[in-house]
Write a protein that binds this DNA or RNA. Sequence first.
DNA 1: GCAAAAGTGTTTCGTTTACACCCATGC
DNA 2: GCATGGGTGTAAACGAAACACTTTTGC
Lengths: 265, 265
Amino acid sequence: MEYTYKYPHPAIATDCVVFGFDGYELKVLLIERGCEPYKGMWAFPGGFMRIDESAEQCAMRELVEETGLKLTYMEQLGAFSGVYRDPRERVVSIAFYALVKSSEVNGGDDAAQAQWFSVDKVPQLAFDHDYILREAMKKLRQAIHFNPIGFDLLGESFTMPQLQRLYETILGVQFDRRNFQKKMMQLGLIEPVEEEQPRYYGAHSEMKSYDIGVLFREPTSFLQMSRPTDDSEDQQTMGRKGRKFHFNKEKYDEMKKKGTFRIEF
Amino acid sequence: MEYTYKYPHPAIATDCVVFGFDGYELKVLLIERGCEPYKGMWAFPGGFMRIDESAEQCAMRELVEETGLKLTYMEQLGAFSGVYRDPRERVVSIAFYALVKSSEVNGGDDAAQAQWFSVDKVPQLAFDHDYILREAMKKLRQAIHFNPIGFDLLGESFTMPQLQRLYETILGVQFDRRNFQKKMMQLGLIEPVEEEQPRYYGAHSEMKSYDIGVLFREPTSFLQMSRPTDDSEDQQTMGRKGRKFHFNKEKYDEMKKKGTFRIEF
DNA sequence: GCAAAAGTGTTTCGTTTACACCCATGC
DNA sequence: GCATGGGTGTAAACGAAACACTTTTGC
């Protein structure tokens, strides 16, 4: 079966830049190419768009097919339309980026050849995917000011240091612990997870240690991601206990509706 | 001559959302469609991408062909890939937006059917261009925080009230004159145009009116745009005299290189 | 002449930054 | 027990917002 047009039509493909966070590093999901061109190199999950689906649908379908990761939301990064970006034929790629919770990062069992790479240790990629990755990082850094997207990268509950490390990793800067917490709390989007007993009475309190109640907290789940490179020393230094917070989605939706979200750093 | 593929390929088109500013309103450039579909309706300039050009090149070429406007820079808005957005065949459109100086807005002589519309008075558009316009406006409002794009919409020199009106129009808010000026001057991107004599001695100065020098200023050029709707009362209230400023492109480039530009409102 | 626009500084307030000590954890 | 991480408040500095009066312009 063949399809004929009066004028040449490029093919349209999608690519997904999926970011994850293991508590220490920002990761990106790659697949190893099983066929030419660029066979054996790493690339973003993605594939050709079908005639009866939108680019968004295509991106999500391909992501499931290639990595087992099922997402409901992706943000478009843009179209990449360089004339020679694919050696086979003219291919315009519409790229998306997405953020996934750390808990989902090992779900991809379909994904024999899918792996997470630290964004700092990404190998040379197929096609123009190096360029696409740089653009995705740029967009991510920008987007984080207008959307509390950080929370998409964390699990159900998280500690303040985890959240801070996430922001520091994405933005490449360091924050003062106390000021960071204040800023985050001022947003009104996160609240402490209720505990049976107070963790301890604060340094400025009159209460003394002998009055501390029993601590009822589950151990922090160690965030894990598959490791592409085993030579890296285990820097999974996360997992210390700490007061947990969770994200209030209702307030976020409300804020998003009004378009008032804004965070400065 | 025909082009045959093993799988169906959508067509790829580009659309240009070109913004202009007449000193009072934010305008957008539209063309009247001369053929089906949507014949007689207004739409963004644009057209089908050739096989040997990138989307950026296509957008600029089509803009020249249809409106006579030659631009060197456009920002990509994104790809619009709804399955039914074009009744003829499957067409994916890559949209761009651009800002033009007020002086260029009447240059399009090729453009018999091209006209500027106030963004508040845009008629119903062809295809999904209403949606594209909304997205472009969103992007414009966001972009203005990270780029001094406002200056692309103004001429060689401008008065502070003009600049302020521009920002107020785009963002839909009002600013205090004095604080706005302070903020703009703090950026270090604009400087007063040298004058032979001071305009007058300020209110807080010891000097009095009898000491005022001769004023050497050209009359402010009245910014003009073709008017699509003649029923609108003439609100071309611009053109009062005032101290002029100009934009320091070198400092802007320097700032952009460092990535430090940021303006808060 | 008059109404509306434009030019100019200072004070107040809120936000951001800088900073220190004690407790908890994991080895 | 010791080193590191984590939890908490306050004071100083900075930046943003509020605000009034005079001159200029265009009718």
